[in-house]
């Protein structure tokens, strides 16, 4: 309790520092997730239809996934330096596998009889996609996005190690100074953000879930 009060006092004594780190953290997360969505949603729709594309890209992101994020961060350094870009790219790579894999699976596992019925009734390809395939795939895609979001929120703290800011700054500083209160100034908001993302995405998912 004492520790929490200290942490709060620390944050309140430097509000502009705290809010800057906070906003930076959110911007990092949103940037990474947005880029991953823009790449992986169309890619997943394609890989679900093409065996060749599926083998190639799913394997590729799976390979990228096993590289630890911190390693990716440092691998980016020679190209983008100690910057926001490096951090955003590393986080994007982290966000891609769950989104791509779930999008691919969502479209691949659609019941072929449903697609056939839709065609047989005279829907054109675009209508089938919008009115039938997408609504049925959405819950599984959202699960992938939820996983990605939570992972990225937590991992964005690593950006501090290469000077890209975010709430990780307080964690790095706190551990350097062996000051747990400062560390919590970074850790608690990150934990809350991750929980909110989890809860929010679950609710969204339930709202689009097909009745079973």
């Amino acid at each position: 309790m004492e520790l929490l009060r200290e942490a709060l006092a620390y944050a309140q004594s430097r509000p502009e520092l705290f809010w800057e780190a906070f906003v930076r953290h959110i911007v990092l997360v949103l940037t990474a997730i947005s880029i991953a969505l823009v790449i992986c949603l169309p890619l997943g729709v394609w890989t679900a239809r093409s065996r060749w594309a599926s083998l190639t890209f799913i394997n590729l992101v799976n390979t990228l996934r096993v590289i630890p994020s911190i390693a990716v961060l440092f691998l980016m350094l020679p190209y983008f330096g100690l910057s926001f870009q490096s951090a955003a790219i590393a986080l994007t790579i982290l966000a891609m596998p769950p989104i791509l894999i779930n999008t691919d699976a969502a479209f691949r596992t659609l019941n072929p009889a449903i697609r056939e019925a839709a065609q047989g009734m005279g829907m054109d390809a675009l209508t089938i996609f919008r009115k039938v395939e997408l609504p049925l795939a959405l819950p599984i895609i959202l699960t992938g996005i939820r996983t990605a979001l939570v992972e990225v929120i937590a991992s964005a703290t690593l950006a501090a190690f290469i000077g890209a800011g975010g709430l990780g700054n307080f964690i790095v500083l706190g551990s350097q100074l062996r000051n747990e209160a400062i560390l919590l100034v970074g850790a608690i908001p990150v934990a809350i953000m991750a929980i909110l993302a989890e809860v929010g995405m679950s609710a969204l998912q339930r709202s689009v879930q097909v009745p079973l």
Binding site: A113, I114, A117, L136, V210
Partner: peptide
């Protein structure tokens, strides 16, 4: 046009193909 043709023909299959959503 293939969509127009299909709209004029009723199609029923064993697995029903009803849209679950």
């Amino acid at each position: 046009p293939v969509t127009a043709l299909r709209q004029r023909i009723g199609y029923v299959i064993q697995q029903t193909g009803l849209f679950p959503h």
